[in-house]
Nucleic acid binder design. Structure first.
Lengths: 240, 240
DNA sequence: ATTATTTTATGATATAAATCATGTTTTGCA
DNA sequence: TGCAAAACATGATTTATATCATAAAATAAT
């Protein structure tokens, strides 16, 4: 898609409400100003691509408000969603640090406000700012752990358990809507399948199974977790 | 196993032949000396545990000579090997950076010489040494990419392809023996299965299948890749 | 508004891979 | 050196999940 991206009002990083949730939480003063002054603030419409697998990275993306999926396409062209990003999350920095091309594609799951910091600015601040590199290392460490656990579950757990786990993960990541208690993300069944690592039909089938069992409630694309406790048991999380 | 670990002759890091292959490649002078002076050099016999999933990290392990498997045990107690380490590789740093317990277990695949650097020394040098934190970030980035790709393949590729891929990975990681051309690692069929993410019987079956097809040659635990080109095709690596 | 297209939903069927079962070989150990 | 235990090998069977097929519902496009 090549819908022209609109910009949104420039937010000064130091006033950004998401600052403390991000890797820039401990970055202050001049360092933060340099980033703030150099960045551009863009709106990505639902379905728009922030960056593409195989492409050259030119900077890092900082999600101000929105939801982004990060996915890898496998050999047969099937999408595997490897991560989800929300407010305060930073994307595309991994490729920059490793001096590689993007190994994943980032696509907006809904209209999102995203700030873009040029590569050289990010790297130069990173070089000076100790706390920032600490945060970056911490983030990478966390993501590596999560990926390795996900990998293990993919190898060992049946689809139903992984689906349950995914639903809990969605709740944890994006939360629920105020009143309705529906999960605050709208994913297609195919996307859920690509998150779980299964066929779309299987995901659909198991979702309606959980629905019939009264564990969840489905209303179109909306999903409500009715029996959280039971869902945890179905997910079979001995770990947490 | 609690076989008492023997130590080996203390190697000064600056003379270490593996230095340039490690994250300490750009660390010099005093910083390197501090590490070198504080470290202990231990021999781990085959099967010995360097550290355990769930345990508290007290330092980082630097493989001087040897082969180590890093694995996570899944809910049903099944081992999933998530990484393999060789000379020059550093282990256990992820947990330290994230201030978490180990999320994986490290076990020697053969008698190995491993240096141990205490946590506080590692962290204090890391805080001072810019190049080191750059290398750490680069390493984490690479490992994250690898984990995400592995995860995708686990979700999407059939066992046979993953097995082929694993064999190629073993060759790439540990190389082959001079004359014989056999892979320079001895893994049990179960370990191969736990690397591929399949049942032991399936791994055994597919290995002897590849053997009959003349792609590989089996001699006990020894494996020789006879037809590399064909194995790459079987692995179905559109990516590389 | 009407049609076309995509997404969701289920059923039927096929199949890859796990599990169970049994024998053989290798390895470690007393 | 011989015995027990572990690892390897293969066949038979089961099972989970993918694939194929078709229809209804929802979305998007004209």
């Amino acid at each position: 898609m090549s819908i022209p991206s609109k910009t949104f009002d420039h937010i000064n990083c130091s006033n950004c409400g998401k600052l403390n949730d991000s890797i820039f939480c401990c970055t202050h003063g001049e360092h933060l100003d340099v980033i703030s002054d150099s960045k551009t603030c863009t709106i990505y419409k639902k379905g728009q691509v922030l960056f593409n697998e195989g492409g050259h990275p030119f900077g890092v993306y900082c999600v101000n408000k929105g939801k982004i999926k990060i996915s890898i396409v496998g050999d047969e062209g099937k999408e595997q969603i490897v991560r989800l990003a929300k407010d305060g999350d930073v994307l595309g920095y991994r490729s920059i640090l490793a001096s590689e091309r993007y190994n994943a594609t980032a696509i907006a799951l809904e209209d999102s406000q995203v700030c873009f910091v040029p590569k050289d600015v990010f790297l130069s601040v990173l070089k000076e700012d100790r706390p920032l590199s600490g945060e970056v290392m911490k983030l990478l460490s966390t993501q590596l752990r999560e990926a390795e656990i996900k990998l293990t579950h993919l190898a060992q757990k049946p689809v139903r358990e992984r689906l349950a786990e995914t639903l809990l993960f969605l709740k944890e990541t994006y939360g629920t809507q105020e009143e309705s208690e529906f999960l605050d993300v709208q994913l297609s069944r195919e996307e859920i399948a690509n998150l779980v690592g299964t066929a779309t039909e299987t995901a659909i089938r198991l979702l309606s199974e959980l629905n019939k069992e009264g564990v969840i409630e489905l209303s179109g694309k909306k999903i409500k977790i009715v029996n959280h406790r039971l869902l945890v048991r179905i997910a079979n999380l001995n770990d947490y």
